[in-house]
Design a protein around this nucleic acid. Structure first.
Lengths: 184, 184
DNA sequence: AGAGTAGGAGAACGATGGTTCTCGCGCAAG
DNA sequence: CTTGCGCGAGAACCATCGTTCTCCTACTCT
């Protein structure tokens, strides 16, 4: 038998791959059982319902996503470079083979109307991301309005990259960001 | 009995309200039957499967959405005004009580991974929208890259407005668009 | 008027999926 | 050793949903 911690990790890993890759409703609990190798009984002990598993998946993904982004951007030397690095990181993300857009936007589109926890998690994720951009913008001594504009560019790049299947929107967004940055 | 044309209209109206408002998989055919007042038999005569009804819904929405946008923007006097009017129209749209983001992005997030018709329709919609922006940009004598940047702003505004439930992103996007327009 | 047909209401069917239950096994405590 | 508990495997259960079928009504065409 495997430890509860390992079981939880395996479940969350399987859930993330499947939910993100195919959508929340398209994936059944049985499939998460098979992919994780954890029995249905244990699965329901750790996550009492599919809804709770979805929330756990989204919560973990939110934290990890923002950590990856911040680790990349914060490694830059100047505030301006950190801002532009956000778009470089987006480009790397878009290039990953399993990239399929923003997990939160996708979940919101699918269940936001019928599940307030999902809607709330999506909103919290966007707010946290926008808050991070606001920090970077403030550190660069730029007006707060700029951070809102950058957020729209990033958001638009994510959606566009997902639907067109190309990483190019990240470069276009960076170009636009450079113009806005210079003008602000 | 009602005419086949009326039945088709009523079905498509009901499907649009329900699919857009609650999601594709969250709405059953029975509910479309009730909302439209058209019997299940007729419904399946006109749309042989739920998948085909979804496609019909998306096709009609694509055309209507772009017509509404173009009717609004094309009424402006100058090319620059037409570009900025796109964002004013977005603001009006975001303010509608049943606004819930882009039907195509939502559908893509929900079924894009498992249904190629849905993925293809979403891509076609975005391409058509971007093409329209490219026309406006070219008419203003601006470089093609600008139209890509404007597309990202619009796209980001739609997603952000949907998740935050506010129409404000349209104004922020317009502000950013004005800066990019002046700099291009 | 009478026969045949189209249509409506809704039951029925089959598949799927979330959740729980049963069964049998292995291990740990007494 | 044996008793009981926790676990895994998977069947079972129940609701939902896409799709089709049945039955009955009402109208049309002669």
């Amino acid at each position: 038998m495997i430890s509860p911690e390992t079981a939880e990790l395996r479940i969350l890993d399987a859930a993330e791959t499947l939910f993100y890759g195919r959508g929340l409703q398209a994936v059944g609990m049985d499939e998460i059982r098979s992919a994780s190798g954890v029995s249905l009984k244990r699965l329901y002990q750790l996550f009492p319902s599919k809804g709770e598993l979805i929330q756990a998946y989204l919560r973990r993904r939110d934290i990890r996503w923002r950590q990856r982004l911040a680790a990349y951007a914060d490694a830059q030397d100047t505030p301006e470079e950190r801002i532009l690095a956000v778009f470089d990181w987006l480009h790397e993300w878009f290039g990953e083979p399993d990239f399929r857009g923003c997990a939160f936007s996708n979940s919101f589109g699918e269940l936001g109307a019928t599940s307030s926890p999902v809607a709330e998690t999506a909103r919290a994720h966007k707010e946290a991301f926008f808050g991070y951009l606001a920090e970077l913008t403030a550190a660069a001594g730029k007006p707060a309005s700029l951070s809102g504009h950058l957020a729209l560019l990033a958001e638009g790049a994510i959606t566009t990259a997902a639907i067109t299947g190309s990483a190019e929107p990240a470069h276009a967004a960076k170009e636009a960001a450079r113009v806005l940055l210079a003008a602000a």
